[in-house]
Amino acid sequence: MQRRAKGRHDDVEANTPKEATRKSSTRRLADLALALVAAGLLYAAARSGASTPNDQNEMQQPLAKVFAFHRDEEFLLGDWLYWHCAVFGCSNVVVMDHASTNPKVLAILEAYKTRGVTVETFRGAFGEKAEALSRAMRARADEARLLVPLDVDEFVVLEADQGFVADARRIRAAFAASASSNEMRKFKFSSRVAACPAPADDGDALGGGLHVVSSGNVVADAAKRPAVVRAFSPPTQTAMAKTFFRGGPDFLETDQGNHFGKIRRDNASSQDAMIDNRNFDRFFARTPLTLLHFSMPDFDTWYAKVLQRAKAYKFTMATQCAGVRRGQRYCRSFQKLRGGAAPREIARTEYADVCGAIAAQQRETGGARQRLQGGLGSLADVLLRRPR
């Protein structure tokens, strides 16, 4: 009887407030355990590459769209497209073709269109390059987090202590850092220049009849692909370095050389004529990204470019080159070439003089031979391995 009564007493006690509190605590512990399990699953999903709903917009929107304006740039176009497709994806590359007529150039463009590159034909004047690029960029401003205008002799790489990094993942990570920042200024590339091809016996050059070092061996390069040859940069980043932009409605326009550009947050004091090395930090954010600028390729390419640029800028033999703000070096070379009428010997002397000026500037800034490094190896090696 006592045992039965005790049992009845236990049954009654189970319905007391004390037992209700115990059950409530048990439920809270169970809920906490479930929450911890759910958190663990979310963490594991994130580590495995899955995305949360808040990440979806960022993942669906491309990191960057790259824009280039060119006309018959046979020397570098194929390599430029190959490299930037590798870094950003062909669907994020837009080429404004200035009514090219070179059959090889047209074939390259057609081949890359089938891979997803957007090619738009522009039939206006070269002097309207900035307007053409700006229209294309505004039309796609909401399609990417960053808008990157380039020339086809400029290759995106990453600054490093001992030279440059040509690793696509690290390059994208640097762009992503800019895109994810709260920075509302325009972004600056570092000022880097790839100098003229060195003599063939130097072992560090690439160009018509020249060579490039690959893994310690000199490899002949009949295709004349670019290589880093005594690249240099100024001691400090300058206002004339190239610029890229945040996507979205804040973007307004780029300029003829992609040095400055405009966004809605700019004001009258941000006009390019008023920006110099003393105040450009007010308008631009520095980045570790840089451009290898192959401004001095082989002689024939350089010669054709001088005449083409002079015509585009409407230079004549009477132009006062010292007062020219844009394209001054093309103006001077054009006049020394006598508008194309000078003998080839004079033209080759001018080419050597311009290369000499670059070498002198390189020595003054302490620029040394700098090679590409990283997971993809040197840019030259990557391009040399690329099938034609």
Rank of each mutant, 00 (worst) to 15 (best):
V229W: 09
R230A: 07
R230L: 10
R230H: 14
P235S: 05
T236K: 10
Q237G: 01
T238L: 04
T238H: 01
T238Q: 09
A239M: 13
A239Y: 14
A241I: 10
A241N: 06
T243M: 08
F245P: 00
F245R: 01
F245N: 00
F245D: 00
F245S: 00
R246G: 10
G247N: 02
G247D: 06
G248T: 11
G248R: 08
P249D: 15
D250N: 10
F251V: 03
L252S: 03
L252K: 03
D255K: 04
G257D: 09
N258M: 12
N258A: 11
H259T: 06
H259V: 14
G261T: 01
G261D: 03
K262H: 06
K262W: 04
K262E: 03
K262C: 00
R264E: 07
R264M: 13
R265H: 14
D266R: 10
D266N: 15
A268H: 11
S269E: 09
S269H: 13
S270G: 06
S270E: 02
D272Q: 06
D272S: 08
D272G: 11
A273S: 15
A273H: 12
I275A: 01
R278F: 06
N279I: 10
F280E: 02
F280M: 09
D281S: 13
R282P: 00
R282S: 00
F283Y: 04
F283E: 02
F284G: 00
F284T: 05
R286V: 01
P288T: 12
P288H: 05
L291Q: 02
L291R: 01
L292V: 00
H293N: 04
H293C: 06
F294C: 13
S295L: 14
S295N: 12
S295I: 15
S295W: 10
M296A: 11
F299D: 10
F299E: 12
D300A: 06
D300V: 12
T301R: 14
K305D: 08
L307S: 02
L307H: 08
Q308A: 03
R309P: 14
R309W: 15
A310T: 04
A310K: 02
K311I: 07
K311H: 11
K311Q: 11
A312N: 01
Y313D: 00
F315A: 09
A318P: 07
A318K: 14
A318I: 05
T319P: 10
C321V: 12
C321K: 13
A322D: 07
A322R: 11
A322G: 09
G323W: 15
G323D: 15
G323I: 11
R326S: 04
R326V: 06
G327R: 02
Q328S: 13
R332K: 10
R332M: 12
